[in-house]
């Protein structure tokens, strides 16, 4: 018996945004009387953290603390239209819409502050802690709470903004496939290290090294969540998952989490991840979508590592012990 170790590589790109465009998302933003900015959306946070990153976008543009932003979603009576959360479009589309709305609101905010401070709006800056101050004369400043109260009760102005992001729809030329399908491309290279049990065909993934280029990491901790969780899903797809294990027969389809196999906490690989940034011109602060792509590179990296380990070329997903062992047997000429 031997445990055969191997290393495999895969490099991929991934499109951000629904193919072919034509998928707008809107954002509305307004300040309460005390300077909390409510971002109204109908976008759905699947747990990838959309609400958090778009609040970061709004805070950055407004120049206010993150805590001053509230995200109100997802109610079709109160939130403006969003096409939905899929195709790694959420951060990109909704982020851009929020930035546009926040920029419009910021303009009003600075205009009212200029009135209050009796200066030109162009001379004002935000400091990220809640104050709007005159550049170079920081003692001359007003806090957003006072400013919002003044805007509402004294100036009769709403500090608000509207945003929408639309990538124009592209049609496909049916003869050639010419099209403009995406907004930008993120990139990844994964190196997987596996061990193959040559008597049972069981593959264990020991390590995954992930290098990602995602434009801008708006929230690095949440990027890590995506990379780790996606790599786990990729490993799961690669080695375990099938709704019809005897495809194309529909027999023995797993019906629960006991039968539908996915790696448990005892089966996970050590992961090492590095993030590179090459901001996209059209991304919110340069960000590209990372939600979906993180499951992709691990699959071929594992397939290639299996070959490196034992000479078996897996061509069918998932790479079950049975498939690997049948091929090992064939290599040895025992069947």
């Amino acid at each position: 018996m031997a445990k055969l170790k191997g290393r495999g590589y895969a490099s991929v790109n991934y499109p951000t945004g629904m193919n072919l465009g034509g998928d707008p998302s809107q954002a509305l933003i307004h300040s309460t009387t005390t300077g909390t900015f409510v971002v109204s959306l109908s976008s759905v946070d699947l747990g990838q953290g959309l609400k958090t990153v778009v609040a970061q976008c709004a805070a950055e543009v407004l120049g206010l603390p993150f805590e001053n932003i509230l995200i109100d979603t997802a109610d079709t009576d109160t939130g403006p239209h969003c096409m939905g959360t899929f195709a790694s479009r959420g951060t990109h589309r909704v982020g851009n819409a929020v930035i546009m709305a926040a920029a419009e609101a910021r303009e009003v905010m600075l205009a009212v502050a200029a009135d209050e401070l009796e200066v030109d709006p162009g001379d004002l800056e935000t400091d990220g802690t809640g104050f709007i101050a005159v550049k170079g004369a920081e003692e001359k400043r007003i806090h957003i709470t006072d400013l919002a109260l003044a805007a509402h009760f004294k100036h009769g102005r709403t500090i608000s903004g509207r945003g929408i992001f639309l990538k124009e729809q592209s049609t496909v030329v049916p003869e050639t496939g010419e099209m403009d399908p995406d907004s930008c491309q993120a990139h990844a290279c994964t190196v997987a290290v596996v061990e193959v049990d040559d008597e049972t065909g069981v593959v264990e993934v020991l390590e995954m090294h992930n290098a990602y280029e995602i434009g801008r990491a708006l929230n690095p901790a949440m990027v890590t969540q995506q990379v780790e969780g996606g790599a786990w899903m990729g490993m799961s797809h690669a080695l375990f998952e099938a709704t019809e294990p005897y495809y194309p027969a529909r027999d023995h389809g797993p019906a629960d989490f006991t039968e539908y196999l996915m790696p448990g906490p005892a089966d996970i690989a050590r992961q090492y991840s590095v993030i590179l940034e090459r901001p996209a011109d059209n991304g919110p602060f340069g960000a590209k979508g990372i939600g979906e792509m993180t499951a992709n590179a691990p699959i071929p990296a594992i397939a290639n590592a299996i070959f490196d380990a034992c000479g078996v070329r897996v061509e069918t997903m998932p790479f079950t012990p049975e498939r690997v062992l049948r091929d090992l047997d064939a290599l040895k000429g025992t069947t």
Binding site: T200, P245, H252, E259, T320, P321, E322, L325
Partner: peptide, 14 residues
């Protein structure tokens, strides 16, 4: 037997 975990072939083989 075959089931969601493994085929009869595999069980016999290992």
């Amino acid at each position: 037997r075959d089931d969601a975990y493994a085929s009869a072939w595999y069980r016999r083989r290992v």
